[in-house]
Design a protein around this nucleic acid. Structure first.
Length: 285
DNA sequence: GTGGCCCTGTGA
DNA sequence: TCACAGGGCCAC
């Protein structure tokens, strides 16, 4: 579900609300949602305090006071958030704020101040993983394989990284080993802005066009972060609130509609196994 | 490369 | 009933 801007929004919200909070107890309604050893998770989480919250690609990293790290990947429908304190007035809350009554709430951490940190995931693709040390986290193949951050990679490095890669440009943008954090929405939006078709071969694109793509990727991601992400169906931030960047989509979800630039009918095709929407006029190979 | 799989829900 | 959904991995 969430891509870099949504995960960044959640990380910022959690950092605001979770730093110094202590875990009192852990409840696992669906134990397999913990992808590392469950007994270790249950034994080590109580008594821990959160010291910082970070993001790497689409991965949330919650640093704990004993040097261990709780990594959370939301995949398609995961949500990690703090319902407002609700003792005695549960009925006033909308469904997104009372997930502890929901069959898709798989884990809850009770905090010593009475709040809960909730992990909710309809499709169960996501999960929690506890690493004892930073070294252990960094040795995790998924973590070790992540490419550079799109908002940090210099233009020249981006251009070279894609210019000498064989394959379709959209496949490469979605490849977390090549660049970490871009998903289906922001790949399509960036390619539209850059005027590049999703199935263009990366190694045939000029340095100038790849440099433009680098700029558009950064612009789209930054604008989306400023809008607190995009909410299509499931995504909510750490407070259970929706983002607003879905109102700014130029192509994603708009197949059959008019191109906002040239009025042509936006087309749809499958690239890298994902639905891609593009303008057949404005975007070129 | 592609297609299937992990899951469940939703809308055509 | 079927197609499809912000992801990632695995076998062809």
């Amino acid at each position: 579900m969430p891509e870099l801007p949504e995960v960044e929004t959640i990380a910022r919200g959690l950092a605001r609300e979770l730093i110094d909070a202590e875990v009192l107890a852990v409840e696992l309604a669906y134990p397999p949602i913990v992808r590392t050893d469950q007994a270790t998770f249950l034994a080590r989480m109580p008594g821990r305090r959160f010291v910082s919250v970070r993001r790497r690609g689409k991965l949330l990293l919650l640093d704990l006071d004993d040097g261990s790290i709780l990594a959370v990947h939301l995949r398609m429908t995961g949500r990690l958030f703090l319902p407002p304190s609700t003792l005695g007035r549960e009925d006033e809350l909308c469904e997104f704020h009372r997930p502890w009554q929901d069959k898709h709430t798989h884990a809850r951490l009770l905090l010593s101040d009475g709040r809960f940190l909730v992990y909710h995931d309809v499709r169960k693709f996501g999960g929690l993983a506890l690493f004892e040390t930073a070294a252990e986290l960094n040795a995790w193949p998924f973590m070790a394989g992540l490419g550079p951050e799109p908002l940090e990679i210099p233009e020249a490095v981006f251009v070279e990284r894609f210019r000498r890669s064989r394959g379709r440009i959209k496949s490469l943008l979605l490849d977390q080993k090549r660049i970490a954090g871009i998903g289906n929405i922001y790949a399509d939006e960036s390619l539209f802005r850059a005027g590049i078709l999703p199935d263009a071969q990366a190694d045939t694109l000029s340095k100038k066009r790849l440099a433009a793509l680098h700029g558009h990727v950064q612009d789209v991601l930054q604008e989306a972060i400023a809008a607190c992400g995009s909410s299509i169906r499931d995504y909510r931030d750490a407070d259970g609130d929706a983002g607003s960047f879905q109102n700014k989509f130029q192509v994603y979800g708009r197949a059959g509609g008019a191109c906002l630039r040239c009025k042509a009918v936006l087309a749809k095709a499958t690239v890298a196994g994902r639905t891609s929407v593009y303008c057949p006029i404005c975007q070129k190979r």
